[in-house]
Design a protein around this nucleic acid. Sequence first.
DNA 1: ATAAATCTACGAATGTATTCGTACAATGCA
DNA 2: TGCATTGTACGAATACATTCGTAGATTTAT
Lengths: 127, 127
Amino acid sequence: MTTEIEIKPTESELEILQILWEKKRCTVRDVHEVLTQNREAGYTTTLKLMQIMHEKGLVARDTSSKTHIYKALVNQQRTQQHLVSRMINNVFNGSASRMVMQALGNHKASKEELDAIKQYLDDLSNK
Amino acid sequence: MTTEIEIKPTESELEILQILWEKKRCTVRDVHEVLTQNREAGYTTTLKLMQIMHEKGLVARDTSSKTHIYKALVNQQRTQQHLVSRMINNVFNGSASRMVMQALGNHKASKEELDAIKQYLDDLSNK
DNA sequence: ATAAATCTACGAATGTATTCGTACAATGCA
DNA sequence: TGCATTGTACGAATACATTCGTAGATTTAT
């Protein structure tokens, strides 16, 4: 039996995690700059969020120089996995396929994406 | 341009919505009974939640008799759609196909489900 | 008719997310 | 050197979700 870990980043934390997953090592300012491309936010707000994420163990930070360097501690795949599973249960009564169809019906994937998914499905079937 | 509506039920509200989507017309007790099959909750807690949902316009209620009758006001499809889209953006950087693969890789769909999805994909391609 | 059960309304406590102001230290530059 | 800039720490305000106790009305059963 594996140890149960609660992976439950808030929405703001997820925004930041996505940036950290992308860019590996970031200062608060790095993150803040990306964040404010989309929406308004004060610098100390971003700072505070990242400090809280550190308390929670979502990120690690290197404090050896004045400007701290952050990186994600939680695994991208595992986190995504966890969140998708929760949504399947919470919103789709446990039916993965229903969610998949809902996602594809709406979100207009490109032909390449659709082909990739088909390929993936074939691989799954032949295992 | 369509009117922008914020669909953002909380987790508890989603639990209740799922019950209402399933059973159409419910009393608080009906909902409460289903709810407490899984977890602990006081009756007035469920009541309060449903009252708040009413304030928010998530549900309608018939108060003509002492025991009120509730039904969902928000559409199941639309709500699911909205939540899936948000997750794709929040967690998968906007890539629907990534989420789909994550969902299928984990949540072990049955052969029937996989076939249904393939069929669905073919239909999408041929449109 | 009276007591028990069932229901709604309401307020309050608790927990957590989010936002930002202020203080103060370190750094960079004129 | 002295001032502006950039950074962290911290506390506090606000908002919202969640939980439940209590009061009072209505219904049901004895």
